[in-house]
Computed example of a mutant assay.
Amino acid sequence: SLVDLGHNVTVIASIIKSRKVKKRAFNFESKYSLVQYGSYLPFSIRSGLNFLLGYLVFRREYSLRKFDVVNCHRVSYAGLIMRFAKKRLNFPLVMTPHGEDIQRIPEINYGLRLKKGWEKRIGKNLLIADAVTAISDSIKQEMDFLSQQKIFAIPNGINLDEFVPQKSFKLHDDLRLDYRTKIILSIGRNHVKKGYIYGIKAFKYLIEKYRITDLVYVIVGRDVENLSYLLSKLGLQNRVFLVPQKDRPTILKYYQSAWCFFSPSIVEGLSMVSIEAMATGLPLVVTDVPGNLDIVRDNKCGIIVKNKDPESMARGILDLYLNKELYNKFAEIAVKQVKNYEWSNIAKKYLDVYQFAIERCNSRK
């Protein structure tokens, strides 16, 4: 989107050692320059080799391209490189934390800042930045040690052209479900922070307590098959379906097949899958945690339930199930409000922050 607005963009990123992941991550055409750094040697991170290579590649590109401003995404390891570079080159620097590098959830041991030494490192990285962007209010609250004048709330965006709020039965066909079946959909890799265990227990409570027969729960993502033990334990093999990660076109069809989107997460930076669900016209049922709460609270497009509370989650889904007028209202609001997350609009907000950083950096020289 920045390129479309007439700007030259260079992305400097570390190499991805897994060939499978590398193919998935970079198998696309781009309008910007992509420069990679790093080593495939063992222990290249621990030894500091990748740090050195990252700095040298950045310095080379900075000399060649004369960057007007640098936006460092993720403020842990990349932040260390940029702090080192800024001390020597003094360029306008914007930093953008995304989740694990700034959030802390001690009960599930989530967050780099809980690990020895990283609280101080990340704090120093953010302090040296001329401006900082927060993808959600929850992320902003984690940076209360910074001057609030240099923090700007800018969410991540999506490409709305990808999404069409129309009905598909692709997921029904793949799972051999009756077309009248309503699908509660969750998307994302199986990680403790996603709270899928609580989501499955909530669905168990919902169908047993209220004897609902036309709902199923589908979880799509990497490693979700590891939850199959819980389905067997709860006797949900025919009502909850675990679908491995799919390609992008298939995921888009799965959104269109769903009845609502459900995020039982314990924490999120900003739930991009919830925003994508909005673009497809799906009402949301999300937990009251950072990165989830922000989306529904700000857009009034769904129901907020208590995290790690299967009964509260079940009641939230039930409210949506029993109230068709409420369901239609949330669906309409979702499609309308998701325009706020269009990348072209988000890019313009970043340009304002870049200008702030440039002026602040110049005033301190």
Results as ranks from 00 to 15, higher is better:
S1A: 14
L2G: 03
V3W: 10
L5W: 13
A13E: 13
I16F: 01
K17N: 01
K20W: 03
K23N: 15
K23Q: 12
N27T: 08
F28T: 14
Y32E: 09
S33L: 14
S33N: 14
L34Q: 12
R46K: 13
N50T: 07
L56H: 01
R59I: 14
D68I: 02
V69E: 05
R74Q: 10
G79E: 04
R88V: 03
F91W: 09
V94I: 09
T96N: 01
G99N: 00
I108C: 06
N109C: 04
N109K: 15
G111L: 06
K115A: 00
W118P: 05
W118A: 03
I122W: 03
A129I: 04
D144S: 12
F152M: 10
A153W: 02
D161G: 11
P165T: 01
L171W: 08
T181C: 08
T181K: 02
K204A: 03
L206R: 01
E208A: 08
K209A: 00
Y210V: 07
T213Q: 14
Y217K: 07
V224M: 08
L227T: 06
S228E: 12
Y229H: 05
S232T: 13
G235Y: 07
G235C: 05
L236V: 05
N238V: 06
R239F: 04
L242S: 10
V243S: 06
R248H: 12
Y254Q: 06
A258E: 06
F262W: 11
P264E: 13
I266W: 02
I266D: 05
V273M: 11
G281R: 03
P283S: 13
L284K: 09
V285G: 12
V285E: 08
D288T: 03
L293N: 11
I295C: 07
V296M: 03
P310C: 06
R315N: 15
L318M: 13
N323D: 15
V335Q: 14
Q337D: 15
Y350T: 07
V353G: 04
F356P: 05
E359P: 01
